[in-house]
Design a protein around this nucleic acid. Sequence first.
DNA 1: AAACTACGCAACCGCAAAGAA
DNA 2: ATTCTTTGCGGTTGCGTAGTT
Length: 317
Amino acid sequence: MGRAPCCDKATVKKGPWSPEEDATLKSYIEENGTGGNWIALPQKIGLKRCGKSCRLRWLNYLRPNIRHGGFSEEEDRIILSLYISIGSRWSIIAAQLPGRTDNDIKNYWNTKLKKKLFGKQSRRDQRQHQFMRQAAAASDGMMKQEAATGEAAGSSSMAVANYNWHHHHQAMAAVPVQPILGSIMEGHRAGDEVDESIRKLLYKLGGAGPSTALSVPQCVPPMYCGSPALMPPPPPSCPAVDTGTSLDEGGVQGSGVLPALEMDHSFHFNQVKLDGLESFFGMSTDQSMRWSEGDGGTSRCSGICGVRPCHWANGVW
DNA sequence: AAACTACGCAACCGCAAAGAA
DNA sequence: ATTCTTTGCGGTTGCGTAGTT
């Protein structure tokens, strides 16, 4: 038995909205609000539209103070750093950019920003796409682990959503996007721009103490990225997995020193993404982790921890 | 000028979470 | 505690348009 459709697809209108439909929906909501029930709304106002479609139209287009296009450099930076930090959680990213919708940001990322950052090479683009999916899956796994275990008190998503990124990015405003990426690639030097705000955010995201320099092993199964407390014991054959290896000591491309070492946590969280970035820039992949989907959806880490390969599968090293 | 390709954006789809009954 | 409904989200698709051959 299939899933019940949210509306009668035979009678419901699809495709682009007409100005009349827009006007009907807009004027009704402005006068009466949504009534707390999107499903019932279109019938109430005589629109042959699915409730979900109405909601989407309102949120992405008709809502007051919506801005389309014309993303500023600052917005680029915000999107970039949030993407690196939390992945494709567009609604959270949108919450930091007043007037922007998640759909807009998602489209902007997919069509422009990604190319702006990574260049426009189709082969690489494909690899990147694949890598992004894997990275997102890894991030998701981690976030879900946290949610399931009550880590990151108060829910990571909410914490990020409530965080004021403008504050942080005012401090970063002088740094163009490319150099930010560059600094990440060089070992996460963010220089003096890293301020208290991001520390707080990462604390919320990862649950580490606000002044704690995290120590994380270099080879971590995707579902544990960023959650050292949840990790299984290290593989006995993995020399890099000791208790004191933090990223600035060689975690990712080596030697950079981040003033606020709490950043380690965030970057480790996204190490898989950064590894992907390395490959796009033609940097060595020898020491990059390679995530691959195991049989039956099991995530595997085929990491090469410095010297010897280690392997995580099905909950064991 | 026509055919083809790439791009950008709006909208749809399906899943999962949240809330109500 | 369970089931059902609604909402929110992220991924994907489809269409119109601009650019290229």
